[in-house]
Structure formats: C-alpha cells, structure tokens
C-alpha cells in the first residue's frame, strides 16, 4: 500500500543525530552494512568489490562538510571555518514522497510506528522512489534489482531475544562517540524528544515538505581559535618563572 497512513502514527520511531559529537569515523556506516547484509531482505551487494571501481548499496553514509562563516576564511577574524561530519540515512519522513510514487505498493510506511520499509518481494526495481527522495536515502541493489533503505533495524529493535541494550539500530549501538540516538519522537517525554527540545533539533530540507522524523542536533557554538590561543604562554614570555628557571632567566638576561 503506497498510500501514507491517514493519521499521524501513534509512535514515530527515529534517530537523533548529534552533529556536535560525530567524529566522522564511519563505524556506523560499516556496522549498518554488516548487520543489514545478513538481516532484512536480500544481501547488500557490492559491484567490483576488489577492483578499482568498487561500489555497492549502503544504507547509511557519512559526508563531511566545511562550514565557513562570513569572513571566516581568515583564521581568528570572524569565527573560523569548521568541519562537520554528517551521517545520513533514511529520515522516515511523515510525508514520505518515496512511498506515494511507488507503483507496486512495495514502499510503505507502517501505521503503528512510522517506519518506512520496502517489501522486496513486490519491488520491481523501477527506481522512482530513489528519485523522489530528496535526501538520497535509497539505493538500488544492483544484484537483486530491488530498492534498499534503512529499516531502522526492524529486526533488532523488536527482537526480544536480544538484551535490552541491544534493541536499538546497529548504528546507534556501534557509535563510539555516542552521536546517534534512537527513540520515539512522538512521545515528548522520551530521551530523544527532550534532547531535540533542549538542543534545537532540526529538520533537513524542510522546504521539501517531507516532514522528516529523524532530527539533527546542530554543532554547539565554538570558541574561536584566536581566543583559545590568547591564553597560551608564548615562548618569549618568561614572566612567572620560578626557582632555577628564574635564576637562569636572570643570568641569561645579563649576558
């Protein structure tokens, strides 16, 4: 069924990604591929895996951006350019355009928890949903000829044979910096909702009208490099030297 749920889903499961914390290690990218190549649906194939033109289907990728404030090209002038690592996977949009364009009913949004999934047995691999997603969150598996996307690790989060701590998406469990959080964004009392409220969590490309469930926490304002440098002792400055160094300083001055 490619009609979206008629009402807002009671649960909105999704991720909150902290851009202040992500160190760009790509651990979540690898653990996602590892988990999902053996989990839901067909394996995530790679093409030319050992060749020069390796490519493949991945459900989570980390981009890295440079953000330069006005006048920031000159170090210490008006804030500095900074690097922001930017993990991106399906945002499980409330108004998911990828779902409504699907001709077969393979793409759907679950009415219970809002997770957007592809039923691979119905998918004809037309690729229209990947065109409709403005975020590039869907990639065709060229071996199986079906569309792949983040399932929010549907086979982990409800898996009661797992310990509680493991019932989160693989990327969240793996992140060594704790930059990724999983929870119900429909519940204002959930940890993720509180985090979003406190840190000003934001939507990506709100102008596309997709109403993403996943939120991104902006990087915290940073002290400029020049401000930090002011506090450092400079090599020429010997004020405050004590004991042997004070004596040596005095002797050397006299020579």
């Amino acid at each position: 069924m490619t009609m979206l749920p008629a009402h807002s889903t009671p649960k909105k499961l999704g991720l909150v990604i902290d851009l202040d914390v992500c160190v760009g290690c790509h651990a979540c990218v690898v653990s996602c591929k590892e988990w999902n190549t053996g989990g839901y649906g067909s394996a995530l194939s790679d093409q030319d895996p050992y060749g020069a033109d390796v490519s493949g289907a991945w459900l989570n990728r980390v981009h890295t951006f440079e953000v330069v404030p006005e006048g920031g090209e000159i170090v210490g002038e008006a804030g500095d350019a900074r690097i922001v690592h930017f993990p991106k996977s399906c945002l499980h949009c409330e108004d998911a355009p990828c779902v409504t364009v699907c001709p077969t009913g393979a793409s759907y949004k679950r009415s219970a928890d809002g997770i957007v999934l592809v039923d691979e047995d119905k998918c004809i691999g037309c690729g229209l949903c990947a065109w409709a997603c403005p975020y590039g969150a869907r990639e065709m598996d060229l071996a199986a000829g079906v569309m792949k996307k983040c399932t929010l690790c549907i086979d982990r989060i409800y898996n009661e044979t797992f310990e509680e701590v493991d019932r989160v998406p693989s990327c969240v469990r793996t992140c060594p910096a704790n930059a990724r959080h999983f929870g119900d964004l429909a519940d204002p009392q959930s940890d993720v909702s509180i985090m979003v409220a406190q840190r000003g969590g934001m939507d990506l490309m709100p102008e596309q009208g997709t109403r993403p469930v996943n939120k991104y926490l902006p990087p915290r304002p940073r002290k400029s490099l020049a401000d930090s440098a002011r506090g450092l002792p400079l090599a020429e400055n010997t004020d405050g030297a004590k004991g042997f160094f004070a004596w040596l300083d005095g002797m050397l001055d006299r020579i």
């Binding site: 991945w58 951006f65 953000v67 404030p69 690097i83 990506l204 709100p206 991104y216 902006p218 990087p219």
Partner: peptide, 17 residues
Amino acid sequence: SATGLGNIGHVRLFERP
C-alpha cells in the same frame, strides 16, 4: 538547507562519503 548548517556559515563539501 540540506545540512541545516546555514546559520553557521557557507557550507561546502569537504569529503564525499
């Protein structure tokens, strides 16, 4: 708008994934 980082400054790609 794609990264939500516009209020910090001008955004340009540093490294592809």
